[in-house]
Simulated scan of single mutants.
Amino acid sequence: MKIPPGLGEALLQSASDAIIATDHEGRITFWNPGAERIFGFTADDAIGQSLDLIIPENLRARHWAGFRHTIETGTSRYGHGDLLSVPGLARDGRRISVEFTIVLLRNEAQEVTGTVAVMRDVTKRFEEMRELKRRLAGAGGRS
């Protein structure tokens, strides 16, 4: 398959979805305009920082256990197009809901050198679903 010229750069610079790359230690190495829009941090703010920048504190231990396992084994439950839904942390302290897929970056020896995640802010949809469930639960008690 021939990739059209400029396609890669156009995707990476997209402002709709966040594209975030990390090294094998979880330090941010790439942060596109979509990540800036969703999380509120500029590339200058984010690059070189730990992913803790966007992970709520109460979820960090679980995140890092999974991250280390993925880096060490080269496998991820979420690496085959599966969407993972998690809370994220915006610059202003708000918790947001994001869905993402992850791709492992490998060197010539096929060792994992980092990750790339493509993330989408689904906060509005998550809140609408929660409200709908609340309304349905309330309506179930009426005759």
Results as ranks from 00 to 15, higher is better:
Glu127Thr: 11
Asp52Glu: 12
Arg142Leu: 10
Glu72Asn: 12
Glu36Gly: 05
Arg60Val: 02
Asp82Lys: 15
Ala10Thr: 14
Gly34Ala: 11
Ala109Asn: 08
Lys124Val: 02
Trp64Leu: 09
Asp45Tyr: 08
Leu12Met: 13
Ile3Val: 14
Ala15Val: 11
Phe41Arg: 07
Gly114Met: 11
Leu89Ala: 04
Ala10Gln: 10
Val86Pro: 13
His80Arg: 14
Ala137Leu: 04
Ala117Lys: 12
Ile54Arg: 04
Pro56Gln: 01
Arg130Gly: 02
Val116Gly: 05
Glu36Ala: 07
Ile47Lys: 04
His24Asn: 15
Arg95Phe: 11
Met1Glu: 12
Lys124Glu: 07
Thr123Tyr: 02
Phe126Glu: 14
Asp121Met: 08
Ile20Ser: 08
Arg95Thr: 14
Gly8Leu: 15
Gly140His: 05
Glu36Phe: 04
Pro5Tyr: 09
Thr29Lys: 09
Gln110Cys: 01
Leu7Trp: 05
Glu127Phe: 10
Ala46Phe: 05
Ala90Trp: 00
Thr101Lys: 08
Asp82Ser: 15
Asp92Ser: 07
Ala139Gly: 12
Trp64Asn: 10
Gly8Lys: 15
Thr123Val: 08
Met129Pro: 03
Ile28Arg: 08
Thr73Lys: 02
Gly140Trp: 09
Phe30Ser: 13
Phe41Gln: 08
Asn107Cys: 08
Ile20Val: 15
Pro33Gly: 04
Ala21Leu: 11
Leu83Met: 15
Trp31Glu: 07
Gly40Met: 06
Val116Trp: 02
Lys133Cys: 00
Ala46Tyr: 03
Gly141Cys: 01
Gly138Cys: 00
Thr123Gln: 03
Pro87Thr: 00
Leu12Gly: 10
Ala117Gly: 12
Tyr78Asn: 12
Phe100Glu: 01
Gly93Pro: 00
His69Ser: 13
Gly74Tyr: 01
Leu12Gln: 10
His63Pro: 07
Ile28Pro: 14
Glu9Gly: 04
Phe41Trp: 15
Thr113Leu: 09
Ala21Thr: 15
Thr113Glu: 08
Ile47Arg: 07
Leu136Arg: 02
Gly141Met: 00
Ala137His: 06
Pro4Asn: 11
Ile28Ser: 07
His63Met: 01
His80Trp: 09
His80Glu: 13
Met129Phe: 04
Thr73Val: 03
Ala46Leu: 03
Arg134Tyr: 06
Thr42Ala: 04
Ala137Thr: 06
Ala139Leu: 10
Glu25Thr: 09
Thr123Met: 02
Phe39Gln: 03
Arg135Pro: 00
Gly48Ser: 03
Asp121Gly: 07
Ala18Arg: 12
Thr70Asp: 11
Pro4Met: 10
Gly88Ser: 12
Arg27Ile: 02
Asp17Glu: 15
Arg62Leu: 11
Phe39Gly: 05
Gly140Phe: 06
Asp92Tyr: 01
Arg142Met: 05
Val122Cys: 06
His80Ile: 05
Thr113Cys: 08
Ile38His: 04
His63Gln: 04
Leu89Ser: 02
Pro33Cys: 03
